[in-house]
Design a protein around this nucleic acid. Structure first.
Lengths: 266, 266
DNA sequence: CAAGATCCGTTTACGTAGTAAACGGGAGGG
DNA sequence: CCCTCCCGTTTACTACGTAAACGGATCTTG
């Protein structure tokens, strides 16, 4: 009987979350506050207890400080969340340890898009409770499409594709298709990941009455229930990404052959 | 100079939202309460003022009643939101007027998937502020993937594909790819739609200092800014959907030719 | 028709949220 | 030594979700 998330091969985007460096019994040491410390604390808190549990008072307490102290560094809760999103997204650019996602230098646009996709997926899996925030917070400009939430990122995306021969229209169409793909796949993957843990901390009485809705009326669901519960997210992500790249390659080749006229994805 | 959302042809999924039937000056008549009236009121309220503005007290007031009256029909706010999602999703199944999305009877699985996709898209565009709720609320079972949030729907999906010759694995892979596609595209489309209105009701002082971030450092963004602001959502949706169907068709054909062995999307 | 019982919206009240405003103590500079 | 920032605390206010008690219709039953 296969449980979720375990295939034989390891998922390279799935990295163990590192423990805090200095927390001993739950109290942190009372060194001076700092916007960056606050943001880091907020990310940690959301990772640990979920987004809904993050309140100014509790975040303050987790940093060993009263809630109002936070307001000297952060205008309010909303801006705090914006800061959290920004901070987590910027994880992409820091060359943490010997990992391979160094967005700027790349071998061809396909390699770039694959690196980028796995970089974002790694972020999503490292912070499942933060990702919905990345996905749904209103972006700076309307054409900044989550989860690619930084001007620098979009600039680099468009630059890479146009340098590779994409027309402006085609590059933008690719950008839209790519962001839709990432958002859909990762949001669903992360949601299911969160659902598993939230099912665990809700034992909910009878383990025999656990199967709340009986599926006798739904033969296809009943027959395929084990298959439906299998988690193939990594493989599906890879496959869909490959398909998208193939599609973009087709667009590029067509545009090259047919000379000048515009031919975007639509 | 093209503004967003306006192409020459009309978007068939975009229907004008009908006005309330009985509201005159903002006060509703004080007839008896009712779970369905509450849910309808909640949907209307979210459509009108956004999800964040929905509170029990305000919803009560909009129905001409105190907040606590709602608790006789709804266990609490969370369940109210669940009810809202359920109600809006069920819109799919009602044959409202002479529209063509009658999910059950169909001509081939491609036709079914296209009808379904446009049906969901219609819902998303009719209730842009509700859709994020549809997308992110924890589903009944972990394998119910938003935005296809009903057992009946998933059952019908799997039944249609398996009847058409898909193996169980292939049908489920198709279900996953399809839901990811829908979620990504529609969530982004709806987000941008909400951003436009929220930019309008925030005139924000100087119209000359409106361009908050200057793009001199981002030449690709600067050059393609008008293109980026163009809204081609409908065409892109159609194109990506077509591509997905092609892909599924390939899977089906392969499986037919190569006899029995399993070949899912991954 | 009288007398509960039941239904349903209101009132009151409590705990927790975000945050404005006043406060206070310690560090550094004149 | 005193003044003045700096920075975290205290206090206080409003709005939220919701538990609990309340009260007037309306219905049921003898």
């Amino acid at each position: 009987m296969p449980t979720a998330t375990s295939d034989d091969d390891r998922d390279p985007d799935l990295v163990a979350v590192k423990e805090g460096t200095e927390v001993a019994g739950g109290m942190t040491r009372p060194v001076g506050l700092d916007r960056d410390r606050i943001l880091r604390g907020a990310v940690d808190y959301i990772d640990a207890h979920g987004l809904a549990a993050l309140t100014m008072r509790r975040l303050g307490a987790s940093l060993g400080v009263e809630a109002m102290a936070l307001y000297r560094y952060v205008p309010g809760r909303e801006d705090l969340l914006d800061g959290v999103v920004e901070r987590v997204v910027e994880t992409l650019f820091v060359k943490d340890d010997g990992d391979d996602l160094y967005i700027e230098e790349h071998n061809g646009w396909q390699d770039y898009l694959m690196r980028l996709a796995h970089g974002i997926r790694r972020i999503a899996l490292a912070h499942p409770s933060v990702f919905p925030l990345i996905a749904s917070r209103p972006p700076a400009a309307p054409w900044v499409r989550p989860p690619l939430r930084s001007l620098r990122l979009v600039e680099s995306f468009l630059g890479t594709l146009t340098e590779a021969g994409f027309s402006d229209q085609a590059a933008i169409a690719a950008y839209r298709a790519y962001s839709s793909f990432l958002l859909g796949h990762l949001l669903l993957e992360v949601t299911q990941l969160g659902a598993q843990v939230s099912l665990l901390d809700q034992p909910e009485g009878d383990p025999e009455a656990q199967r709340k809705t009986d599926l006798t009326l739904f033969p296809n669901l009943q027959r395929t229930e084990q298959l439906l519960s299998l988690d193939k997210s990594a493989a599906e992500f890879e496959d869909a990404l490959e398909n998208l790249l193939d599609r973009l390659e087709g667009v590029l080749r067509e545009a090259r052959n047919s000379g000048g006229e515009v031919e975007d994805l639509a």
